[in-house]
Simulated assay, not measured.
Amino acid sequence: MICQTTGWGGQPIKSAAHASPDSSDPHFDISTRLTPQTQSRRLRITFAGSTSDILPWKFTPQQREVRVLPGETALAFYTATNLSKEEDIIGVATYSVTPAQVAPYFSKIQCFCFEEQRLNKAETVDMPVFFYIDPEFLRDPNMKGIDTITLNYTFFKAKYDKNGHLRPVG
């Protein structure tokens, strides 16, 4: 939560200014952010995925990259396969954005991260992420010269602690 609030470590910020459509603020209008900035250069969004050493899954992006205008929505997919032939496994993904200073402008509308993903033995599933780059990106002098942004997910095997809370392991 600290990373999502501050943008530390390349975590996209979840704030009123960069809220998703289900924002609790009744005055928030996401449509003000979702206007493609046609006078802008297109940004190259690349995708990466990995798993922890103890999670027997294969996890990869389905596309290498997409090119988007700030304010334009994009849909990307990752594929996860449980390589275990003996057990169903629950995984939880974390994500980051690089370069880290872009994180406040990378807004996910829908994503699979931080939620339990249960894959049955030998099961393969597609996982979507729907996102946009906030147009405010263009007004930040620190973003000048940034043309490529990488969205990276890492899956961890999920375990429950003694209090019944889900936590990633390894």
Results as ranks from 00 to 15, higher is better:
T51F: 02
T46F: 03
Y132M: 08
E87S: 12
Q117M: 09
K159I: 12
G49M: 03
K159C: 04
V169Y: 06
F28T: 10
I54N: 14
D147Y: 13
Q117V: 09
R42N: 08
P26R: 10
W8N: 13
S15R: 08
L75M: 14
Y160I: 06
E86T: 11
M143L: 09
V102G: 00
P36F: 02
F47P: 01
Y105T: 02
F77Y: 15
Q62R: 14
A103C: 11
T124L: 05
R167P: 03
H165C: 08
L119Q: 03
D25E: 10
I146H: 05
Q11W: 00
I149A: 00
F114A: 12
T148W: 02
F130M: 09
R64A: 11
I149W: 00
P61T: 08
F59H: 12
E116S: 12
R64L: 12
N163R: 11
E116C: 07
Q37G: 05
S20W: 04
H165F: 10
R118F: 04
H165W: 07
W57Y: 10
K157S: 05
T51C: 15
A17G: 15
R67N: 12
C111P: 02
T124M: 08
H27L: 10
A100F: 08
T94P: 00
A122Y: 06
P141Q: 11
T38F: 06
S15M: 07
C3M: 09
E116W: 03
L166K: 14
D134V: 03
Y132T: 04
S20P: 01
P70D: 06
N163M: 12
S52K: 06
G145T: 11
T73P: 01
V97T: 15
P135H: 07
M127S: 04
Q39H: 15
L119C: 05
T51L: 07
P56D: 13
L83F: 02
L34Q: 15
F28I: 08
V92E: 00
